[in-house]
Design a protein around this nucleic acid. Structure first.
Lengths: 140, 140
DNA sequence: CTGGGTGCAAAGTATTTGCATGAAC
DNA sequence: GTTCATGCAAATACTTTGCACCCAG
């Protein structure tokens, strides 16, 4: 929990109990939508309001404590900022999981951007399909 | 315009004037949000309702006539289904443009998916940054 | 203390739905 | 003619905002 205090202060945000609860919820789930975060957070802090969740997600995305992961056909999820990775997104159950991003992708995309005089700031690589569990479930 | 008739029929949708107007609007803009589509469509068909735009986007995404491009921090845009490509997304002006996707990315991601028993159905590679125009505008 | 943060309730947007009418096939 | 689509208005869902009170620094 205390690791969050640093992250927040470095980002110019006060380390409130609410924010730490939100960060813990997201870290616990890996990736979560506003609703999922809200539900989770209520378990340990039943008076935390939905408005506070929204305000803090906005504030923390602004300061790059959190990263938005927009998902085709679903609501965006949020994750803690971490080193570059790609997402495996299950279109069946909605689960998202991280995998390392091959460095050649960075090089390729860097070139593409350069050739287009595009100033590259960030990459999102998302793979959609069926996760192992949902595949097994379908097969049976 | 008549190309759309085929696309729609093959997808099991009636070829209404509204749908063709919507498809023409999207193709004209390349990528567009619901609002942008609605505005564009009103120019040539002022009685077309927003509800119809919504219903048709849902129907056409379901049948893969359209593809949703969810964008971090903004509303999703929609594009016609076309061969694989990546997106350069300008965080300043919101423009989206397509670039070819290096085949090595396909190979890399195929492997990642395979190693995770993930049944890969689709890829989205999005690069965020500043487009050439916005860079120039900032420099001046 | 003081400024930013929280919680509530209300407002503002965005999206979906039901249903009567109308158009495609 | 049937079936599916449209347009309207109403309902719902989602997100933001204003403001009085509160807490971290």
């Amino acid at each position: 929990m205390s690791q969050y205090v640093e992250i927040l202060k470095e980002s110019g945000l006060k380390a409130t109990f609410q924010r730490m609860t939100i960060l813990a919820a997201i870290e616990g789930m890996g990736h979560a939508s506003v609703d999922e975060i809200y539900e989770k957070v209520l378990e340990s802090h039943p008076t935390l309001s939905l408005a506070t969740v929204y305000k803090n997600i906005v504030a923390m995305v602004e300061r790059a404590v959190l990263v938005e992961v927009p998902i085709s056909g679903k609501k965006s999820k949020y994750e803690l900022r971490k080193k570059e990775h790609l997402h495996l997104i299950c279109t069946e159950c909605g689960s998202v999981s991280d995998r390392p991003l091959d460095p050649t992708i960075n090089e390729d995309t860097r070139k593409v951007a350069e050739d287009s005089s595009f100033e590259l700031r960030d990459r999102q690589v998302n793979l959609y399909g069926l996760c192992g569990e949902c595949r097994s479930a379908k097969a049976s």
